[in-house]
């Protein structure tokens, strides 16, 4: 892999605790003196969080499809009635 990709892999290994102890100490030292490396690490951390949000959005879309099917399935009329009863005003 080219150098920039190896740096990304090393950053990932650092963030996930996969570096050896000496490698981790070296990385911490580099982060103290290299603001670009530090910024890239924070950006990479942000990317993982955004990928999680993206994954959750996709999963929510799958769940919404299930919701639509259940609430439009003629065979599940009794189920829908049970749910509707919960929210009917006395």
């Amino acid at each position: 892999m080219r150098t920039s990709l190896n740096e990304i892999k090393k950053t990932e290994d650092f963030l996930t605790g996969k570096l050896s102890a000496p490698e981790a100490v070296l990385m911490q030292a580099r982060l103290l003196i290299d603001p670009v490396l530090k910024m890239n690490l924070e950006l990479q951390r942000k990317v993982y969080a955004l990928v999680t949000l993206y994954g959750r959005r996709k999963l929510k879309a799958e769940i919404e499809d299930v919701h639509d099917r259940i609430f439009h399935d003629p065979a599940r009329a009794a189920y829908r009635e049970e749910i509707a009863q919960l929210f009917s005003k006395p």
Binding site: M1, L5, I8, N40, K46, V47
Partner: peptide, 14 residues
């Protein structure tokens, strides 16, 4: 390898 390329691309977009 493509995963790391994508991490780089998305990082730069962010």
């Amino acid at each position: 390898v493509q995963k790391f390329k994508c991490l780089e691309k998305v990082r730069d977009m962010v």
